[in-house]
Design a protein around this nucleic acid. Structure first.
Lengths: 338, 338
DNA sequence: ACGCAATATGTAATCGATTACATTGACTGG
DNA sequence: CCAGTCAATGTAATCGATTACATATTGCGT
């Protein structure tokens, strides 16, 4: 019953054809279920396939059909749980459509990103989803002209590329408004570097909310980190509480940073939220686990990924069709830190 | 200076040859730096490449050379930070050797795993690294015969496949010995289902340490969860503390579980480590962030990934050579929870 | 200036599939 | 019984590279 002779594994369509006593065309038709073949012939072919343990060589097929059925996904950091969940979304719709996902960690490095993008031009991937900073996208936009890709989370409105994301500015404003509603007036911001669209937009949103309440963001309460990991958050917290006039609330642009902030505060014997309130962004799974649980803005991560994949697939199907950008809703999740 | 005409992007080697006034063989030689070509000719070709914006079609090349330069990596859960770090290790050595990594989330599902493995037989990947449960590996071992793959973390000694991992039994024993050294005698275990090699080995290691101290593991203190996420840990903790005689220490086979346990305990108003000590396993980044920081066993995640990739590459280079299994050292990390 | 070796380049087969077109055979109606 | 249809299958070109082998060019010694 099981395959037998397939020792090396290199069984080709012509060997199947020979074994079945038909032509390669017929085998191909059977394999793809296209064209008409007599049931008896089909059975002969199937029997030969089984007997030889034949598996189609997709390289050959892809060469002929000029597609690889691979989707490239570029993320700045696979270790960040925020991206992991988006990737899941991408993967689920891709697989459903018969595509595989090639996941690449670019480290937000344009050089690496370029080398990955090359997979598209060398036909090893059919399309790409890019989650890298919009500034990186912008830098590469010219060379990426003509290859099918979509932007996810980060996008450059000046680049005519389909995108999906959230309204970061409004979301950040919501976050800060919540802090203000709790009576805070001395609110600090921990932001990533301005290469990221979200960093700029969230800062703008914060300033919107601050302005509404007649508040401002002094430079002393504005710290910029160059990584999203826990330690960066802890270090930023340390800086903030050493200021002459320390803030009573901290808005961090990512949950990982916020969690680091809480540790930093704890190490300085400051209680959250009693001494300092903390607000994160993303709502990664970990946010609910820590003590106290993190108040944050939830992004629809899974949907972001799914939508990005759908946009890309649509693009591949109808290259000429202009695909619009889409913004998904966010949600304020009130928990224990603010 | 920049590429010009490359509108569609489908420039082939023959067009370059024509533009440069040479044959395709010469272009190929220039592209691959093989064989000898006169510098003047090389320049002509390079100029043509530049002018046309030529990018080699790797599908064609791979068909001819019968390799895809892709490495398949199968993990049960990309969202688990433990795997994320291993993947980083794999990626770094793969890229260094000119390979791309195709990362796949199997959900530990044999069906999905099989479909991914198919990428190998259909020549879309040259080799695979499998992190799925050893039982899943075992089930597929027969069909995977002949395809080059290696096992990482999970492996089946009965399957003649190269592997890399740690000595889970010894590591778990170390963990439990530490608990015992702290004076604990009522120690509970939260384990995953026995499909995983590490689950069985760590339980054995725990029993070793217990036996050394003349202790046992009553069924009431042994809970099995079917997922590694935070909630599973919290739920398990809830169960344990509701027992007639509650344990004073809990050993969870993964940090994510342990972090969930701590939340569960906190929600039940139990203090860690005063009321209950907690010990995790893996030492993911998050372990140091929570309050109190998690005592755990550190696995060399990055090295695990790097070693797995090296093993695979070695296997691809010399298929006949028998590659040994390798075990990497673990380390007890004493922090605040035990 | 000649012949021979070494160097440089071209020709064409090949990898394993898909697919337009050609061919074969069976069946139909008149 | 024949022409015409339609269904089933085969033939061969094709995708875009690599590469063994053939051929052309060059340089060198004498």
């Amino acid at each position: 019953m099981a395959e037998s002779g397939a020792s090396g594994g290199a069984v080709s369509i012509s060997e199947v054809a020979e074994q079945a006593g038909v032509s390669v065309a017929t085998v191909s038709r059977v394999m793809n279920g296209q064209g008409v073949v007599k049931p008896a012939t089909r059975d002969k072919v199937l029997a030969a396939v089984e007997a030889l343990g034949y598996r189609m060589n997709h390289l050959a097929r892809n060469l002929r059909t000029a597609e690889s059925r691979m989707l490239l996904t570029m993320v700045p950091d696979v270790g960040n749980p925020f991206y992991a969940e988006i990737v899941r979304g991408i993967d689920s719709v891709a697989r459903q459509q018969g595509y595989f996902v090639l996941l690449c960690d670019t480290g937000a490095d344009p050089g690496r990103e370029r080398s990955y993008f090359d997979l598209l031009r060398t036909r090893r991937a059919d399309g790409a989803i890019c989650l890298d900073p919009d500034t990186v996208q912008h830098a590469l936009a010219e060379e990426m002209n003509g290859v099918p890709w979509v932007a996810c989370c980060e996008f450059d409105p000046d680049v005519a590329v389909p995108y999906v994301g959230i309204d970061n500015r409004a979301a950040a404003a919501d976050a800060v408004r919540h802090l203000i509603a709790q009576g805070h007036t001395r609110i600090a911001l921990i932001n990533t570097d301005a290469r990221y669209l979200y960093a700029r937009q969230r800062e703008a949103g914060m300033r919107d909310a601050l302005a509404e309440a007649g508040l401002t963001l002094p430079a002393a309460w504005h710290v910029t980190v160059d990584s999203l990991d826990f330690d960066a958050g802890a270090e930023a917290a340390r800086q903030l509480i050493s200021r002459d006039e320390a803030p009573t609330a901290i808005f961090a642009v990512s949950d990982t940073l916020a969690i680091g902030v809480i540790r930093g505060l704890r190490e300085a014997r400051l209680a959250v939220p009693r001494d300092v309130a903390v607000m994160g962004f993303d709502d990664i799974a970990m946010a609910a686990q820590i003590d106290p649980p993190l108040t944050t803005i939830a992004q629809p991560m899974r949907e972001l990924g799914e939508t990005a994949a759908r946009l890309l697939l649509q693009r591949l199907a109808q290259p000429q069709l202009a695909v619009p950008g889409v913004l998904l809703p966010h949600r304020l999740v009130k928990r224990g830190t603010a």
